[in-house]
């Protein structure tokens, strides 16, 4: 993983593996914290980005670990923007999934063990946008925060 950029904008790059995602999330959190972003917002960003990045590892690149994920972050006074770029498979129908909440009310054996990812991304962000451009996926997650 490499990192560069000025204090309010930075880019982190990881290979497409679950362990590299863990490392990039730790780096992201430590950068946000150093910029004065609150623990609560850091927690929301880390969780939403975990879902977005693990989706890329599991679905877009489907286990091709030699591929890169590039995360560019910009911190503005009230808004935090995470832009993720990958060269993997596009989202189905080029659309963001609806991300409904799996039903937690059934009997023990019917409880959902997955399908929470897009629900969490939508619940934690103020805005999500997706674009397929030049053979790349561009996913942007925006968060509101109270001052950095």
């Amino acid at each position: 993983m490499t990192a560069d950029g000025d204090p309010q904008e930075f880019t982190l790059i990881a290979v497409a593996s679950e362990l590299a995602v863990r490392d990039i999330l730790l780096a992201l959190r430590s950068r946000l914290s150093a910029h004065g972003v609150s623990d609560d917002t850091c927690g929301s960003v880390e969780l939403a980005m975990a879902e977005a990045l693990n989706n890329i590892v599991e679905h877009a690149y489907a286990g091709e670990q030699s591929r890169d994920i590039r995360l560019s972050v910009s911190i503005k006074p009230e808004r935090l923007c995470c832009h993720v770029r990958d060269g993997g498979a596009p989202l189905p129908d080029l659309c963001l999934p609806q991300g409904g909440l799996p039903d937690p009310s059934g009997p023990r054996n019917d409880l959902p063990e997955g399908g929470f990812g897009w629900f969490l991304i939508r619940a934690l962000t103020e805005r999500v946008t997706y674009e397929r451009r030049d053979g790349m996926n561009h996913l942007t997650l925006e968060f509101l925060h109270s001052g950095a």
Binding site: A50, E51, E113
Partner: peptide, 14 residues
């Protein structure tokens, strides 16, 4: 930190 995969694993453990 627990993500959706971790949450799913805790549910699966139950």
């Amino acid at each position: 930190f627990v993500d959706s995969s971790g949450l799913g694993a805790i549910v699966a453990a139950m």
